[in-house]
Design a protein around this nucleic acid. Structure first.
Lengths: 145, 145
DNA sequence: AATATAATTTATAATGAATATTGAATTGGA
DNA sequence: TCCAATTCAATATTCATTATAAATTATATT
């Protein structure tokens, strides 16, 4: 067991999640991989190390992590749910051309607001959609074609 | 054919959408009903007047309306896609308790921004989630229990 | 009017993400 | 060790959506 996994183990324990190997590996993947992965991608990645793992275990682990606030789900594409490690609140940009999801660094005053128009705010998600910097540069930088 | 439907007819024609009865009725429903309906709700509502309508027709109509920018899809719940008439940009609040989706009136400076961190912005969706004003008032105002 | 052509609608099947269920395996105390 | 609870995995199922193909309707052409 390396140091990183031990740290993750501690994080899980602190959040009342039993640190099973599967959970560690799943959280480890989400943590290292800075993308916004969907369940299938996580499943395939962890499968390389744990070939017997089932999709259900991935769903289960993600559900627990989410309940405990370790990860945040993104419903940006409208298709599959994507996940990222829960860090300080930030918005996301989805490129409609190449599909990349980019974290935005902007700060907005309402990140600090606890209520809005009388409603109690627990979570905020801001999705910007359009064409990313890279795709704007021209057709030569297209990927996957 | 009443006046409202004639107006919708004109709107459809202006957007190069052939104003079939089905499309008129679907757009009419979304327009009148100020909620953020999902496909099933629209299907069931229109079915009352057009009993032979198929779900596929609803999906088709919604796709066209969306392509032409008449309606906007919301991916707020993470489950089904919801739709609203495309009006001036605004954010949404989802109550995790009762499920209601509320339009927020707040204005933000970035609604006017055409680019963000170098990326070209076409669409912005802001989702606030938490507990709505009404649910905060107490258990007596719960619905459906 | 009749026919051809295209667009629309319907019905049916297929897909794909997510959930439910069940039974086996594992763990943690009495 | 034994029992109970938890966890895991495999299967089946649900549900929203998409794809396909047939049927219907609308539009254009002769």
């Amino acid at each position: 067991m390396n140091i990183e996994l031990e740290l993750l183990q501690t994080i899980l324990r602190e959040n009342d999640i039993k640190p099973t190997f599967i959970r560690l590996k799943i959280l480890d993947y989400i943590e290292k991989n800075k993308k916004h992965s969907d369940t299938e991608e996580i499943y395939l990645a962890v499968k390389k190390e744990i070939p017997t793992i089932s999709r259900t275990s991935v769903y289960n682990a993600l559900d627990i992590f989410q309940e405990k606030g370790l990860i945040r789900p993104l419903f940006i594409t409208g298709n599959e749910t994507r996940y990222e490690i829960e860090l300080s609140p930030h918005h996301h940009f989805l490129c409609k051309k190449c599909g990349i999801i980019i974290d935005l660094d902007m700060e907005y005053e309402y990140f600090k607001k606890k209520t809005i128009e009388g409603h109690k705010v627990i979570d905020i998600q801001g999705y910007f959609k359009g064409e990313c910097k890279n795709c704007l540069k021209g057709p030569k930088s297209k990927k996957g074609e």
